[in-house]
Simulated assay, not measured.
Amino acid sequence: MKTLTSYDHGIHAIDSGYGGERFDAIHLIEEGGRVAIVDTATNACVPRLLDQLDKMGIGRSQVDYVILTHIHLDHAGGAGRVMAALPEARLVVHPRGSRHMADPGKLFAAVQEVYGEEEADRLYGELLPVAAGRIIEAAHGSTLSLAGRELLFLDAPGHAKHHLVIRDGRSGHIFTGDTFGLSYRHFDAGGRQFVIPTTSPSQFDAAALHRTVDMIAGYQPAALYLTHYAQVVDVPRLTADLHRLIDAHVAVAERWRDAGGERHERIKSGLAELFLREARDQGWAMQGDAMLEFLAMDIDLNAQGLDIWLGS
């Protein structure tokens, strides 16, 4: 498995290994011998990240910032362990997420509610706290300098209320976490990339997500970096597709609003049908049952999020 993909402007994607090959990316930004890490994946992925830093000749003390797009554990579960290994780094997080990084007990309890206690323990392990004095709360419009390279932080709700995106002043590119959806390289066909929204629990907000997608597109970035997975281009086309598919997710949920105890499974089946059509119509490289198996976890989480969004 290829662990490292390097792009222009000193930007790199490390395949964290979480969820399988090319599923979850940890991004690096290099400038003047200084480094920022964007998202950490889970505890189990930390050795791979540190090993890759060693292979790149990046010393532990060269890392100035560990930036979390949001505190869902496939993005932030390894943050405590990463910070313990990087003595000079400071953790950058949305103001709504900072207290959970300093004291992750409630965060992990919420994750156990979604996945179940045994599965949450298997996926994420023990969450280590980060000393409050090492945490920077990145408010909307705030900036940090990475060896003179400006990183602009923007509040980006819709997927989660504790989500931010990062605009890189050198390239004009944006690190989007989950707000610009999921774009798996497994589906690429003929050099064409595709995107689908993530509506996972428990803070999906369709109207807010539409606004965030428009905010990102409004900067006219030539490329975006998604945690799932890495660089995407042709941003105007993907923006239109993402808006269309957010609305399609909402339509599936609304159709089954009154389905009672069957609502989750009905929404889940509706999303499966939606993705089968999308794969066929767009010409994804992966089709049919193989595609549904690959997206099984995302479909289930999207259905959970839509179910919660509808309310009781």
Rank of each mutant, 00 (worst) to 15 (best):
I216T: 11
L154R: 03
G148D: 13
G17K: 14
G261A: 13
L53Y: 08
A13H: 10
A25S: 13
D74V: 07
V92H: 04
G133W: 03
Q282N: 14
D54G: 01
D121W: 14
G116P: 00
H70L: 11
E119R: 07
W256K: 10
G288M: 02
W309C: 01
G305M: 04
K2C: 04
T40E: 06
I58N: 09
I174G: 03
R96I: 07
V165W: 11
A156G: 12
L73Y: 05
D155E: 15
L301R: 07
T227A: 08
L91N: 13
G311S: 11
E150P: 09
L144R: 03
A206N: 02
L310N: 08
L4D: 08
L292Q: 09
A84H: 13
A240V: 01
Q193W: 00
F108R: 08
A279F: 09
S6R: 14
R167M: 02
E88V: 00
V114P: 01
G116Y: 05
G148V: 04
R211Y: 10
R96C: 04
R280S: 14
L107N: 14
A296P: 01
D51V: 07
D121Y: 04
E150F: 03
I246K: 09
R99G: 02
I37K: 03
G17L: 12
G125L: 01
A296F: 01
A217W: 11
A251I: 03
A79Y: 09
I58T: 09
A303S: 14
L224A: 15
S6C: 10
L49E: 03
D234I: 11
S98E: 01
I58D: 06
L107A: 09
A253K: 00
